[in-house]
Nucleic acid binder design. Structure first.
Lengths: 223, 223, 223, 223
DNA sequence: GATGAATGAGAATTCATTCAT
DNA sequence: CATGAATGAATTCTCATTCAT
């Protein structure tokens, strides 16, 4: 689930009936190794931060020579992109799963649940935010190809869609819903930044509480 | 004005009576040279961004050899800290000056003016935000000493105080005012992040407009 | 036509009577694949030059993985050797074909035609010269086996023989003819070097004209 | 004599009267160290050839860390350029010194002496020729700046000028003299290539003798 | 016969920092 | 106060080659 297949699974398609076992095995192995590298990369990134993350270190932790990495990724940025993509996948999953939180499926409650899930994901996984802001930086995001950039954008957009839909459910016009989604996104990001950098302590405030309050005001305003 | 004296001020104070002219002269010269280096650093940082900024480049632009820098700063992080301190000074100045915007000095208008000034400062100077988030990162801010960290925190706090005061003027209790100040801060930061990383384009929104709207709702809510 | 079989021919010969069809088929296939690789190698070499030519690139263009190449060649140098061998074949062909240039088959004209063909070949195909000088370098030519080296030498010698013969036709003693052939060879090589490295521009001279002049003087001298 | 000063001796000039001893000492030391690196580079180049020559190896032999080299040269190509420049200096010296070979200063003898000196220099120092042809390659010579390229070209041109002058002395028109100089240059280069790559053995000829013969014919022709 | 994984060595270059002078 | 030399570690990436499968 956590692995976004980057390499083309080529022939797998033609023989939909009986995937040749050999090929299947190799593809699986391959993906497992990619995943292994990504796990190492994530670990390094989370432990050492952006600056401390080098190909060497990733390779070492994955039990590889640096050169070997290039069998799975064309360059360092691709690793980051894969990491981010996978992070966004987890984020989306978290937001989507918020629905299954039982009980009251009333629109306001669902909106809260989804926004909360989004907020909580990054609150619990600060490095995932770092990752995002590292790659989503400046005009031409790091070393990403436009395609990769587009893909990541799409993933982000898709993640926030359920929130936007809920706002529409609550009676907002499409345009308003987009604006409010953006605002929620921004407010969450801002609070999370203050939280992670500990600046929020300056004000003796609690990020989560403030976010809840923001949501409460919002719902009140649009109801 | 832009120079916050970090290192040398000590002796200057103890001998308030008769500062030996020689020492005074040297101290002054010293500060001038520190300022020179910081100017160079700022220029490099703004031009090349965090990644492109190296001690070598700073030294070169300041007309020094890299080694000479260490007479004024103990390491690279200290330069960044001084830069950030000075950036916060400019920010504070911007917020304070918002008052002098003539006409209606009514409380709501003043609140708006100050918050706007804050927002605009970082919108116009993205690198200043980079600087802040570079140093204010994670639990133990980069290579900062606790004292430096404290000082920077104080500066930030002082900058936001005028906004907080205005909220009190508008009738909020002290505790509420702090919470709302934090929220304004967070919202601004969040929108600025989305703006600078261009993620806001995904939603076809405009950061400044959204911030204005946030302020409008806020004022409406608390009036 | 362009393929000089290096490796497999052995068995083919011993069993002149009844070459087992299977082995024959395989041998043929094999040679075809060798040729395929060499074609790719030549293309890469001509396009990217010596420095840009890597086994990986050759393999990629031939539709192989790098490892597969080692079924046909023992190492990179062997590919180059095969390439050079084939280049010398083409050169020989060019010189031999000079005869068929119609009209006056008088000895001086033929000599000129052949020498010109030699010169022109390398003038038009600078990479072929690179190839030659890459392998024919220093005392122990690159990674060539003595046998390979001998073979390449023989090919070169055979290529120049028609010129030497023409000199004999023109009345030179065998020893003199060899010496003059060497001199022609050297003069051509020297001018081509100056031409390809563009050093000849320093003198605002034209390589081809100078070579013609050299030939003219030579013919005049020995007639 | 063998050291072409690349780095600007800056202030040395203003105080023409009494060069401050300190500065002088440092300049001298500096040049000595540059020379040391160049010596190492030459040694590596001569021993391992172009392919084997790496910054690492040069640094190691010079007793330096690779990084330290960059205090004296901005990149690898600059080292090569300095090497070539110095090689051309030696070549020029050799040609110029041919004059001082006493006895008969008649024009033909002088021409021969100079051309011979040129030839002999490269015959005795094959790697110097490699160096030249390495850098003087293709349209945009390796990684050389146009200025460096120009400088090297000028040095080469200046080296051959004495030969050209002698041809004028012998009665050739300027244009003819240039053409013949080019031809002599080319012939020498060609023979030297065959000599160094040992291809001349194929013909059982002797490079030096052939060159002498070329000169003899030339002098005879133009006298 | 061919693949794909992996190695291990190596490339040039950059960097913050130290230190004798 | 400032220099210039030097370090040593790091950076990403490339390459020819090997080998189990």
């Amino acid at each position: 689930m956590t692995e976004s297949a980057k390499k083309p699974p080529r022939e797998e398609i033609e023989a939909a009936a009986s995937p040749p076992p050999r090929m299947l095995r190799e593809t699986t192995l391959n993906e497992a190794r990619r995943a292994l590298i990504l796990d190492a990369a994530r670990a390094v990134f989370f432990e050492l931060g952006l600056e401390g993350t080098s190909l060497r270190e990733i390779a070492k932790r994955a039990g590889y020579t640096p050169g070997a990495i290039y069998n799975y990724f064309n360059n360092r940025e691709e690793i980051y992109a894969a990491l981010l993509s996978e992070s966004l996948e987890r984020l989306k999953e978290a937001v989507d799963n918020a629905d299954s939180d039982p009980a009251e499926p009333a629109a306001p409650a669902l909106l809260q649940a989804r926004a909360r899930a989004f907020f909580k994901f990054y609150q619990d996984n600060p490095q995932d935010m770092d990752l995002g802001f590292y790659l989503f930086n400046g005009a031409q995001p790091r070393g990403l190809t436009p395609e990769l950039n587009q893909q990541l954008n799409d993933q982000l957009r898709a993640t926030l869609l359920p929130i936007q839909e809920m706002l529409v459910s609550l009676g907002l016009a499409e345009a308003e819903a987009v604006a409010e989604t953006t605002a929620i996104f921004a407010h969450a990001v801002g609070l999370l930044m203050l939280h992670h950098t500990q600046r929020i302590r300056l004000f003796k405030q609690n990020a989560q509480e403030l976010f809840e309050q923001y949501l409460a005001f919002l719902i009140q305003r649009i109801s």
